[in-house]
Computed example of a mutant assay.
Amino acid sequence: MKVPGISLLVFLACTASISALSTLPSGTLVVSKSPSPGQYESIMKAVKALSTTSTAKQTIYIKKGEYKEQVVIPLLRSPLSIYGETSTPLTYKGNTVNIKHSAGQSDGFNNDQTGTLRVLTPNFSLYNVNVYNQKGKGTQAVALSAQKENQGYYGVSIIGYQDTLLAQKGAQFYAKSYIEGAVDFMFGDARAVFYDCDIGVSAGGGYVLANGRNTSDLTSLFLVDKCRIHAAEKHSVEEKTVYLGRPWGTHSTALVQRTDLGKIINPKGWSEWSKTDQHTDNAILAELDNTGEGASGERASFAKKLRSYVPFETVLGPSYRDWVDSAYVAS
């Protein structure tokens, strides 16, 4: 099926205790539950110690522990990288740093304000940290609010229920990470790639992706590539009750390719936004070469099939190699 007005259509039819850093750069701010002199006992105290005027790259290293706080990264002039202590840098499975907070729209906040980790600066990287919004069912409650361009998330876990991950603006890259939720839990207006991630669904009846693009130009796009979408561990999810996504915006664009889809996925694959406000006329919700029990079945009439794989540069732009960590991308 041909859809006019978008260039994208050419594609349609280590040691026991380490981090991704080998050594800590000079000037690294260290966070610890038992801080030594010169270290910080909370993540926000380290964040407040960052320079907002320097253009030299800054680094925070977080030692093992549970940090019950909301973390807000302000606008900086420099790149910033935050590393969590881990035994397995290239995956989330050995992470030892947990940031936990509970806030939802039912508390009087907007989506961004509910975020456990709110990143308001570009040129940001996060490694091997688990981020939780513990508000639970019944309200929108963001774990990660990613608000600027050129942000990379590597070996992280992002866990909530509804609206877990707000990928809101610019080019963003998520690799070898874990994202969990039940309702519209990967949403926003960014140009985001999710690569080699485990996506866990904690309840049936919901939707994974909710891209918010509302214009005909390609300002927003979600690409899920070589991921795995299954029921979250220790959660019972009925077969065929979960949709890959629904169009939050009138021109919503979400693509899923080379991904393993579990039996929880409904054969239609995709849903309209609502019965009265469908948003399907200009939406591009497409797949190619997915596998698993959830990859079969007659897809929704408005769903499309990619003609070829969509490369990262289509989503992130031609200069993405300048800021994406190549260690997390297969050669």
Rank of each mutant, 00 (worst) to 15 (best):
F187H: 12
R191T: 08
K226R: 07
A171L: 10
Y178R: 13
D184G: 14
F194I: 14
G212N: 12
A210I: 01
T215Y: 07
L221E: 08
V201C: 03
V193A: 11
D217T: 13
V183C: 02
G204T: 04
M186P: 01
V201K: 02
E180R: 11
C197G: 04
Y195W: 04
L221N: 05
A175V: 09
Q172W: 11
Q168M: 11
V193F: 05
D198Y: 09
N214F: 04
A182Y: 06
Q172M: 14
T219K: 12
E180N: 12
A210L: 15
K226S: 08
V224F: 11
M186I: 15
D225N: 09
D198F: 07
M186T: 10
F185M: 09
Y174D: 08
A182P: 00
F222D: 06
G212K: 06
Q172D: 12
Y174Q: 06
G206S: 06
V201D: 05
L166T: 06
V183N: 12
Y174S: 04
R191D: 09
V201G: 03
A192H: 00
S177M: 08
I199W: 00
G204Q: 00
D189P: 02
L209I: 15
L221W: 01
G170D: 13
K176G: 01
V224C: 07
L209A: 15
A192F: 01
A190G: 10
A210C: 13
T215P: 01
A175G: 05
I179D: 01
F187Y: 14
R213T: 11
K226I: 01
C197I: 06
F222Q: 02
L221S: 02
G206V: 02
K226E: 09
L166C: 06
G188L: 05
N211E: 15
S202P: 02
A175T: 06
D196E: 14
G204W: 04
Y178K: 12
L223P: 02
A190S: 15
D196N: 12
M186G: 03
N214E: 15
R213Y: 05
F194V: 13
G204N: 05
S177L: 10
D217S: 12
A192W: 02
I199L: 15
F194N: 11
